[in-house]
Protein backbone atom coordinates (compact mmCIF):
# COMPACT_ATOMS: atom_id res chain seq x y z
CA UNK A 1 0.00 0.00 0.00
CA UNK A 2 1.17 3.51 -0.80
CA UNK A 3 1.52 5.78 2.23
CA UNK A 4 1.94 9.51 1.81
CA UNK A 5 3.38 11.06 4.95
CA UNK A 6 4.01 14.68 5.89
CA UNK A 7 7.69 15.25 6.56
CA UNK A 8 9.22 18.33 8.12
CA UNK A 9 12.37 18.74 10.11
CA UNK A 10 12.84 22.46 10.84
CA UNK A 11 16.57 21.91 11.40
CA UNK A 12 17.27 20.64 7.89
CA UNK A 13 14.22 21.37 5.70
CA UNK A 14 13.25 24.78 4.38
CA UNK A 15 9.62 23.70 3.99
CA UNK A 16 7.41 20.69 4.66
CA UNK A 17 6.86 18.05 1.96
CA UNK A 18 4.79 14.90 1.46
CA UNK A 19 6.87 11.74 1.14
CA UNK A 20 5.47 8.67 -0.64
CA UNK A 21 6.47 5.33 0.82
CA UNK A 22 5.43 1.86 -0.38
CA UNK A 23 4.60 -0.38 2.60
CA UNK A 24 4.07 -4.17 2.37
CA UNK A 25 1.01 -5.01 4.47
CA UNK A 26 0.57 -8.58 5.73
CA UNK A 27 -2.21 -10.47 3.90
CA UNK A 28 -5.60 -10.99 5.53
CA UNK A 29 -5.05 -8.67 8.50
CA UNK A 30 -6.64 -5.29 9.06
CA UNK A 31 -3.92 -3.25 10.72
CA UNK A 32 -4.39 -0.02 12.60
CA UNK A 33 -2.84 3.10 11.11
CA UNK A 34 -0.40 3.17 14.03
CA UNK A 35 0.83 -0.34 13.08
CA UNK A 36 1.63 0.95 9.59
CA UNK A 37 3.54 3.88 11.09
CA UNK A 38 5.52 1.50 13.32
CA UNK A 39 6.45 -0.58 10.24
CA UNK A 40 7.59 2.56 8.48
CA UNK A 41 9.60 3.72 11.46
CA UNK A 42 11.34 0.37 11.68
CA UNK A 43 12.70 1.05 8.19
CA UNK A 44 13.23 4.80 8.57
CA UNK A 45 13.84 5.79 12.21
CA UNK A 46 13.80 9.49 11.31
CA UNK A 47 9.97 9.51 11.07
CA UNK A 48 8.60 11.32 14.12
CA UNK A 49 5.18 10.90 15.77
CA UNK A 50 3.80 10.55 19.29
CA UNK A 51 2.27 7.39 20.66
CA UNK A 52 2.06 5.59 23.94
CA UNK A 53 -0.84 3.35 24.95
CA UNK A 54 -1.73 2.03 21.43
CA UNK A 55 -5.33 1.50 22.58
CA UNK A 56 -7.08 4.85 22.40
CA UNK A 57 -6.55 5.81 26.03
CA UNK A 58 -3.61 8.22 26.23
CA UNK A 59 -4.61 10.57 23.42
CA UNK A 60 -1.08 11.12 22.13
CA UNK A 61 -1.38 9.93 18.52
CA UNK A 62 -4.08 12.27 17.25
CA UNK A 63 -3.33 13.03 13.59
CA UNK A 64 -5.00 13.81 10.31
CA UNK A 65 -5.67 10.53 8.50
CA UNK A 66 -6.87 10.90 4.90
CA UNK A 67 -8.38 14.26 5.76
CA UNK A 68 -10.06 13.23 9.03
CA UNK A 69 -8.64 13.72 12.49
CA UNK A 70 -8.40 10.57 14.59
CA UNK A 71 -6.23 8.39 16.78
CA UNK A 72 -3.88 6.31 14.64
CA UNK A 73 -3.97 3.42 17.11
CA UNK A 74 -7.71 2.80 16.86
CA UNK A 75 -8.28 3.76 13.22
CA UNK A 76 -8.26 0.61 11.05
CA UNK A 77 -6.54 1.09 7.70
CA UNK A 78 -9.65 -0.35 6.03
CA UNK A 79 -11.84 2.45 7.41
CA UNK A 80 -9.40 5.21 6.47
CA UNK A 81 -8.53 4.13 2.91
CA UNK A 82 -10.68 2.81 0.08
CA UNK A 83 -9.39 -0.49 -1.38
CA UNK A 84 -6.42 0.28 -3.63
CA UNK A 85 -6.24 3.84 -2.27
CA UNK A 86 -3.43 5.73 -0.61
CA UNK A 87 -3.03 6.34 3.12
CA UNK A 88 -2.34 10.04 3.71
CA UNK A 89 -0.94 11.08 7.09
CA UNK A 90 -0.63 14.70 8.16
CA UNK A 91 -0.18 16.41 11.52
CA UNK A 92 -3.19 17.93 13.30
CA UNK A 93 -4.12 21.23 11.65
CA UNK A 94 -3.78 24.67 13.13
CA UNK A 95 -0.94 24.00 15.58
CA UNK A 96 2.75 24.61 14.82
CA UNK A 97 4.61 21.51 13.63
CA UNK A 98 7.59 20.50 15.77
CA UNK A 99 8.59 17.72 13.40
CA UNK A 100 6.74 15.43 10.95
CA UNK A 101 3.49 14.41 12.72
CA UNK A 102 4.43 15.97 16.06
CA UNK A 103 2.70 19.30 16.78
CA UNK A 104 3.29 21.86 19.51
CA UNK A 105 0.24 21.53 21.78
CA UNK A 106 1.01 24.61 23.94
CA UNK A 107 -1.91 26.71 22.64
CA UNK A 108 -4.28 23.80 23.19
CA UNK A 109 -3.07 23.27 26.77
CA UNK A 110 -3.18 27.00 27.52
CA UNK A 111 -6.89 27.03 26.69
CA UNK A 112 -7.40 23.97 28.88
CA UNK A 113 -5.61 25.69 31.74
CA UNK A 114 -7.76 28.80 31.31
CA UNK A 115 -10.99 27.03 32.23
CA UNK A 116 -9.49 25.90 35.59
CA UNK A 117 -9.81 22.15 35.05
CA UNK A 118 -10.04 21.23 38.71
CA UNK A 119 -12.71 21.14 41.40
CA UNK A 120 -13.11 24.42 43.28
CA UNK A 121 -14.81 24.18 46.64
CA UNK A 122 -13.95 26.43 49.56
CA UNK A 123 -16.12 24.62 52.12
CA UNK A 124 -14.20 22.75 54.77
CA UNK A 125 -13.41 19.28 53.42
CA UNK A 126 -15.42 16.49 55.04
CA UNK A 127 -13.65 13.73 56.98
CA UNK A 128 -13.58 11.24 54.12
CA UNK A 129 -14.69 12.63 50.77
CA UNK A 130 -17.17 14.98 49.11
CA UNK A 131 -20.20 12.87 48.31
CA UNK A 132 -22.34 13.09 45.22
CA UNK A 133 -25.68 11.44 44.48
CA UNK A 134 -25.72 8.89 41.64
CA UNK A 135 -27.97 11.30 39.68
CA UNK A 136 -25.48 14.16 40.04
CA UNK A 137 -22.65 11.84 39.12
CA UNK A 138 -24.52 10.84 35.97
CA UNK A 139 -24.42 14.46 34.79
CA UNK A 140 -20.68 14.06 34.24
CA UNK A 141 -21.09 11.18 31.80
CA UNK A 142 -20.05 12.15 28.30
CA UNK A 143 -17.79 14.85 29.74
CA UNK A 144 -15.15 13.26 31.95
CA UNK A 145 -14.10 10.71 29.31
CA UNK A 146 -12.17 13.25 27.26
CA UNK A 147 -8.53 12.21 26.74
CA UNK A 148 -7.33 15.62 25.46
CA UNK A 149 -6.20 14.24 22.12
CA UNK A 150 -6.99 17.62 20.45
CA UNK A 151 -8.64 15.95 17.44
CA UNK A 152 -11.70 18.17 17.95
CA UNK A 153 -10.10 21.57 18.58
CA UNK A 154 -7.69 21.18 15.65
CA UNK A 155 -10.68 20.40 13.40
CA UNK A 156 -12.51 23.55 14.46
CA UNK A 157 -12.24 26.61 12.15
CA UNK A 158 -12.94 28.98 15.03
CA UNK A 159 -9.96 27.48 16.86
CA UNK A 160 -7.75 27.81 13.76
CA UNK A 161 -8.50 31.53 13.48
CA UNK A 162 -8.28 32.38 17.20
CA UNK A 163 -6.45 29.63 19.11
CA UNK A 164 -5.28 32.19 21.65
CA UNK A 165 -8.78 33.53 22.42
CA UNK A 166 -11.36 30.84 21.67
CA UNK A 167 -11.22 28.06 24.26
CA UNK A 168 -12.10 25.44 21.66
CA UNK A 169 -14.33 22.36 21.90
CA UNK A 170 -12.03 20.28 24.13
CA UNK A 171 -11.56 23.07 26.68
CA UNK A 172 -15.26 23.94 26.65
CA UNK A 173 -16.29 20.33 27.17
CA UNK A 174 -14.13 20.36 30.30
CA UNK A 175 -15.42 23.79 31.32
CA UNK A 176 -18.91 22.30 31.32
CA UNK A 177 -17.68 19.21 33.14
CA UNK A 178 -16.87 21.44 36.14
CA UNK A 179 -19.92 23.69 35.71
CA UNK A 180 -22.09 20.58 35.88
CA UNK A 181 -20.34 19.10 38.93
CA UNK A 182 -22.54 19.33 42.04
CA UNK A 183 -19.42 19.49 44.22
CA UNK A 184 -18.00 22.57 42.52
CA UNK A 185 -18.95 25.92 44.08
CA UNK A 186 -17.30 28.32 41.62
CA UNK A 187 -20.08 28.18 39.00
CA UNK A 188 -20.76 31.95 38.93
CA UNK A 189 -17.09 32.83 38.71
CA UNK A 190 -16.46 30.23 36.00
CA UNK A 191 -19.37 31.59 33.95
CA UNK A 192 -18.26 35.20 34.26
CA UNK A 193 -14.88 34.21 32.82
CA UNK A 194 -16.53 32.70 29.74
CA UNK A 195 -18.94 35.50 28.91
CA UNK A 196 -16.71 37.55 26.55
CA UNK A 197 -17.13 37.51 22.73
CA UNK A 198 -14.40 34.91 22.16
CA UNK A 199 -14.06 32.19 24.82
CA UNK A 200 -17.39 30.46 24.16
CA UNK A 201 -19.22 32.59 21.63
CA UNK A 202 -16.76 32.03 18.79
CA UNK A 203 -18.35 28.61 18.43
CA UNK A 204 -20.45 28.71 15.28
CA UNK A 205 -22.03 25.30 15.84
CA UNK A 206 -20.51 23.66 12.77
CA UNK A 207 -20.07 20.44 14.76
CA UNK A 208 -16.73 19.57 13.15
CA UNK A 209 -15.67 18.66 16.68
CA UNK A 210 -18.45 16.12 17.16
CA UNK A 211 -17.67 14.53 13.80
CA UNK A 212 -14.13 13.53 14.79
CA UNK A 213 -14.08 12.85 18.54
CA UNK A 214 -12.61 9.35 18.86
CA UNK A 215 -14.39 8.94 22.20
CA UNK A 216 -17.77 9.80 20.68
CA UNK A 217 -18.19 12.89 22.88
CA UNK A 218 -20.30 15.90 21.95
CA UNK A 219 -18.60 19.25 22.68
CA UNK A 220 -21.28 21.18 20.74
CA UNK A 221 -23.96 20.02 23.17
CA UNK A 222 -21.78 21.02 26.14
CA UNK A 223 -21.24 24.44 24.55
CA UNK A 224 -25.02 24.78 24.20
CA UNK A 225 -25.42 24.01 27.91
CA UNK A 226 -22.82 26.67 28.80
CA UNK A 227 -24.69 29.22 26.66
CA UNK A 228 -27.97 28.45 28.44
CA UNK A 229 -26.25 28.73 31.83
CA UNK A 230 -24.80 32.11 30.82
CA UNK A 231 -28.22 33.26 29.65
CA UNK A 232 -29.83 32.09 32.86
CA UNK A 233 -27.25 33.81 35.02
CA UNK A 234 -27.59 37.09 33.12
CA UNK A 235 -31.37 37.31 32.96
Amino acid sequence: MLVSIYRYNPETDTKPAMQDVEVELPEGKDLMVLDVLEMMKARDPSIAYRRSCREGVCGSDGMNINGTNGLACITPVSSAVKPGGKLVLRPLMGLPVVRDLVVDMSLFYQQFEKIKPFLINDDAPPAIERLQSPEDREKLDGLYECILCACCSTNCPSFWWNPDKFVGPAGLLQAYRFLADSRDTATAQRLSELEDPFSVFRCRGIMNCVAVCPKGLNPTRAIGHIRSMLLQQAT
Binding site: L194, E195, D196, P197, S199, V200, L231
Partner: peptide, 18 residues
Protein backbone atom coordinates in the same frame (compact mmCIF):
# COMPACT_ATOMS: atom_id res chain seq x y z
CA UNK B 1 -11.38 36.65 30.30
CA UNK B 2 -10.67 37.87 26.79
CA UNK B 3 -11.34 41.59 26.51
CA UNK B 4 -12.34 43.50 23.42
CA UNK B 5 -13.33 47.11 22.87
CA UNK B 6 -14.86 47.02 19.39
CA UNK B 7 -17.48 44.28 19.73
CA UNK B 8 -21.12 45.44 19.75
CA UNK B 9 -22.00 44.99 23.41
CA UNK B 10 -18.51 43.99 24.59
CA UNK B 11 -20.11 40.81 25.84
CA UNK B 12 -20.37 37.62 23.87
CA UNK B 13 -23.67 36.80 25.50
CA UNK B 14 -25.19 40.19 24.67
CA UNK B 15 -24.05 40.01 21.03
CA UNK B 16 -25.37 36.47 20.80
CA UNK B 17 -28.81 37.46 22.09
CA UNK B 18 -28.94 40.52 19.80
Amino acid sequence: MVTNVSSFGRSGLFDWVV
